[in-house]
Design a protein around this nucleic acid. Structure first.
Lengths: 233, 233
DNA sequence: TCGTGTCAAGAGCACTGCTCTCGGTGTTGT
DNA sequence: ACAACACCGAGAGCAGTGCTCTTGACACGA
C-alpha cells in the first residue's frame, strides 16, 4: 500500500506522491465533517480540481482510500498516546496509564469520525487488510508495557483464579507480551482496555445522554478505578 | 411514529398497517444481511413488488425507516434480556446478572448489524428521535434493578469515595433509580454496563482477532468479574 | 528521437434517495 | 346514492454515487 518512500527520483513519481498525499488529506477533511458513509470520491476529486476517474489512478477503490485513512487514524492516535505516555516518568505507572487514557479520549473527542472508523462498527463488506494490524496495536502496546512494569515491580494485585479454557484462549495475546505475565493480569489488562474503548465509544455515541451531566468527571473516575484494577493506583 | 394500533377499522387502515409491517420486516432482513449502510429503500420496495415512491407513503424518509428498525432492535434486545433475567430466581442476583450479560451477547452475535445500529457509531446526519429513548433503557433498567436489590440486601461492596463533581454529574441517572443508592454503586453499575457493551462491541468489530482464541470463555470470565465489582459474586 | 508507460479527462452504466404529477380507488359526509 | 375528499400506487425525473472504459496528451528512459 504505502511504499517505503525512498526519495522519489523522477518528477512523475514526485508528483504522484504529492497528489496521493493531497487526496488522503482532503479525504480526511471530508471524513472529519461528514463521516465515513458520507465520504465521496467524487467530492474529493472536485475539491482537488480533478475528475473522479483520475482519483482511481491513485486508489483502486473507495475502500482502499478508506484503508489509508484507517491506517492514518491508528497512527495518529498511536503517536498521540505515545507522546503523552512518554512525557511521564517511567516509574510513575499510574501517571502513564492516566496519560494513555486521557490522551486517547481527547483524541477521540476531537476526531469522532476517525474514532468511529477504527473502533466503530466496520463498514459492511469491508475487510480490514493486514496493513492495519500493526498500527492498530500501538495503544495497546503502551498498556502492555505498563502491565509488564507493574508485574516486574511486584505491584500486581492479588490474582484471581483463571479457568483453564481462558488460559489457553489467551495464547494469541501472550505472543505480544515480551515477558511472562500471569493470566490474571492479562485479563485485567484486557478488561481495562475494553473499559477505555467502550466508555469513549458510549460517550461519543451519545449513550450517556440523560445519564451523565459531566462526562469529563465521570471519565476521570473511571480511569482512576481502572488503575486500581490493575494494581497501579 | 407507531400508533397505539386500536384495531384498524377500515380496510384501508388495515392494509396500511399490514404493509407498514411488511416494509419493516423486509427492511430488517436487508439490514441483517447487508448492514445499515446497504439498506436501500428501492431494494426493499422491489422485494415487496412495489415501486420505490410508494414506500414514501409509509416512511417519509430512509432515516424514518431506520428509526423504526432501531426501536425494533432495542425492544427485541430488551425482551430477550428481560425474558432471560426473569427466568432466574429473584434472590439470585448473580444469576440475574449472568442472564442479562449472556442473553445480550447472544442477541448481538446473532444480529451483529442490528447491534451496530443501536450501539455502534451513529449514522452521520442522523439524530435519534425521542421515541428511541424509552426502549433504549430496557436493558439498563434490569441492571438497575439488580443494583437496587443488592443495595437493599446490604450486599454492596465497600464503597470507594466519589468526588463531588462526579456526584453532581450523576443527577440524570439518579432519576432513573427508584430508591436512593450510593454514588459508588451507581459508578460501579455504569462501569459494568460499559464493560458489557464495550466487550461485545469489540468482539463484534473483530478487535479480539490475534488477541483471544476463545471469546466465549473470555466473556464468561468478564461477566463473572463484573459481578464481583458490583458485589453480587 | 522514438517507443513505452502513465496520466487526466470524458462518457457512460447501474445504482441510490427523494420529489412531483397523474390517475384510480377507498372512505365519508350529505 | 352520490359527490367530495383523502389516500394510494405507478411512473418520470433530478441530482448524486462508485466504478469502468476509451481517448488523447504528456513525460520518461533508451
Amino acid at each position: 500500500m504505502v511504499e517505503p518512500t525512498s526519495a522519489p527520483r523522477t518528477a512523475r513519481a514526485r508528483a504522484r506522491a504529492e497528489l496521493t498525499r493531497e487526496i488522503v488529506d482532503t479525504a480526511r477533511a471530508h471524513l472529519s465533517s461528514d463521516g465515513a458513509a458520507g465520504l465521496s470520491l467524487r467530492a474529493v476529486a472536485r475539491d482537488l480540481g480533478m475528475v473522479s476517474s483520475a482519483v482511481y489512478r491513485y486508489f483502486p477503490s473507495r475502500d482502499e482510500l478508506l484503508t489509508a485513512l484507517i491506517i492514518d487514524a491508528y497512527n495518529s492516535l498511536g503517536e498521540e498516546a505515545e507522546r503523552a505516555e512518554q512525557a511521564v516518568k517511567r516509574s510513575d505507572l499510574h501517571g502513564r496509564w492516566l496519560a494513555i487514557g486521557n490522551s486517547t479520549r481527547t483524541w477521540a473527542l476531537v476526531r469522532p469520525h476517525e474514532w468511529a472508523l477504527i473502533y466503530g462498527s466496520p463498514v459492511p463488506g469491508y475487510q480490514a487488510p493486514q496493513d492495519t494490524i500493526v498500527p492498530a496495536t500501538r495503544v495497546s502496546a503502551l498498556l502492555i508495557g505498563i502491565l509488564v512494569d507493574a508485574h516486574t515491580s511486584g505491584l500486581s494485585p492479588a490474582p484471581l483464579p483463571v479457568p483453564r479454557v481462558v488460559h489457553t484462549s489467551l495464547t494469541p495475546v501472550r505472543q505480544a507480551i515480551p515477558v511472562a505475565v500471569p493470566d490474571d493480569l492479562i485479563i485485567r489488562g484486557l478488561m481495562v482496555w475494553s473499559q477505555l474503548i467502550g466508555t469513549i465509544s458510549l460517550e461519543l455515541n451519545g449513550q450517556f445522554h440523560n445519564v451523565l451531566a459531566d462526562t469529563d468527571a465521570y471519565f476521570e473516575t473511571v480511569i482512576q478505578r481502572c488503575s486500581i484494577d490493575i494494581g497501579i493506583a
